[in-house]
């Protein structure tokens, strides 16, 4: 579950921060779909400040701002 936005504007993996065009990110996507909130900004790969609370998460990129989401496999 990554922050919303057009896929073309999200060239980076929100789990590992690598370029989505390079390598296999299937295991990253599995982690994002189950137990992990995004840790890297999908637009610029910067590490984000992430706060998890019982029902959701908030992630803040110093350049691209805040995104939010619910629990892992809603």
């Amino acid at each position: 579950m990554e922050p919303a936005g057009d896929a073309a504007e999200r060239p980076f993996c929100a789990w590992c921060g690598g370029a989505r065009a390079e390598g296999d990110h299937a295991s990253c996507d599995r982690r994002l779909a189950t137990v992990d909130p995004p840790r890297h900004c999908p637009r610029c790969a910067r590490r984000m400040i992430v706060q998890v609370d019982p029902m959701g998460w908030t992630a803040r990129c110093s350049r691209h701002g805040e995104s939010t989401g619910a629990s892992g496999f809603a």
């Binding site: 189950t34 137990v35 992430v50 019982p54 029902m55 619910a70 629990s71 892992g72 496999f73």
Partner: peptide, 15 residues
């Protein structure tokens, strides 16, 4: 524990 954890996500509480 229902809902999320500290840095990891859990399944939705309703589940």
């Amino acid at each position: 524990i229902v809902g999320n954890y500290l840095t990891n996500l859990g399944r939705p509480a309703e589940q």
